[in-house]
Design a protein around this nucleic acid. Sequence first.
DNA 1: ATTCATCGGTTCATTATTTACACCGACGTT
DNA 2: AACGTCGGTGTAAATAATGAACCGATGAAT
Lengths: 257, 257
Amino acid sequence: MRTVEKALRLLDYYDGQNPEFGLSDLARLSGIDKATVLRMLGDMAATGLVDQDPESRKWRLGAGILRLARLREAAFPVTRVLTPILERLAAETGETAHASLISGRHLGTVGIVESTRSNRVSLEPGQMLPLHATASGLAYGAFARPELRAQLLAAPLPAATATTPTDPHRLAELLDQAARRGYAVADQTYEDEVFGIAMPIFGPDGFATGALAVATPISRMTDTHTAAILAALAPAAREATLGLGGRFPPTQRPAAD
Amino acid sequence: MRTVEKALRLLDYYDGQNPEFGLSDLARLSGIDKATVLRMLGDMAATGLVDQDPESRKWRLGAGILRLARLREAAFPVTRVLTPILERLAAETGETAHASLISGRHLGTVGIVESTRSNRVSLEPGQMLPLHATASGLAYGAFARPELRAQLLAAPLPAATATTPTDPHRLAELLDQAARRGYAVADQTYEDEVFGIAMPIFGPDGFATGALAVATPISRMTDTHTAAILAALAPAAREATLGLGGRFPPTQRPAAD
DNA sequence: ATTCATCGGTTCATTATTTACACCGACGTT
DNA sequence: AACGTCGGTGTAAATAATGAACCGATGAAT
């Protein structure tokens, strides 16, 4: 496989729970030889993408990322646009709202605003969301470039919970349903007790680039609550698309207001 | 040379002025074959580090960076700590203040607060600062891990302006001076008309991890102004070090307050 | 105390991946 | 119509990645 991609995939293991890894940890997780991992980490450290704690010798995300993030935000102010939208969405629904953008083969969470209720869904910052097992992923997949659908259905569909769709036919149904409705739901397909509702965020080409989602504890789900969430989600997703310079595909063009 | 590093160095060409590149641009800049660059970009796109505008086919920084930046900030809140310090420093000095952290072989700018005066130094967000030609670089180099000094003196020292130190002996003098004084100055060594004053930000190991700097138009430089800037810079740099969990080396321990 | 496992890291022969060159069609200028 | 440039592809040659064995250090278990 391509070395550069393998090296960068090492970064996928980092999340809010695991901000640093030892050399052997990463070798074990990735299945790559230690010597190779070490060289990859060395290369990434040389460009500031990771750095090594001189004491514990563990490898962390590096300062170079901040520089890149600043540039990305300057050229394309995603966070600045999404944050207020998420805050409003969380306030209106009383539930945790989050936004994610496509990042390789997964959706990368780029913004989270948690519900203020004590019983709420809590999400890891920076989590990678699988496309087949989350409402965000389905909403994205249903409106992504057509090639993606085939790739998605052909790829392995690991089960995260008992209700994760692992059968390609089932997944195809869910994608079709999301495409028809304009939104996707996920009933505990990724985390037990969590129900997700998501709508796509469209890019300038009229295909999805990410998703905006509301996650609620399963205990609170009722039809009226779902309806309320959708009522708040639709304008928020629309605003997110417009705020990021996206355009709606003809089939999904919302009513002008 | 190592492929991973070469691939990641492509990202160094991005800055505030150049938020996107065509395939051939990057091949030309890097001196790498187009085919190779394309594969590298493909690998980086697969992990979300870059993405390609589907229309113009140009390559931009990707959404995956935001995820990583969030994680980095969560584990190690650099920006949150530095921003208020920079704001205060800019207000007190009336000049542009910026902070940078080591990122591979350069300092990566991670925060800038510009002076409010109309005649001010204006900096590119995300700029990469060479160690030998900037006050920040000298301040960093004078207090970095000892190995760095030899590397720095051995590396090529490209001239950015007429007064850039290009002679290793001269650079060694400047580093010694900075080490003695605890701060570094740069009189138009990187940009004409710009005078920089910088102090190191120390990491947990007592070596520099970055620098805090004030940049002023040469026309405004006087001894009293320099003294005023230093008076504001010293506590700011101290605060930055402490705020990032750093520790001072014995020789640089500031007086307790 | 001694063993044992695991850690981070290095070395080196083998091999598989990267590389560069030529080439492609498409687009814009001259 | 000729030319230059663009993004991208195929291929043979060669370079760079690879992984097993090994090292010293550290820490836990016996």
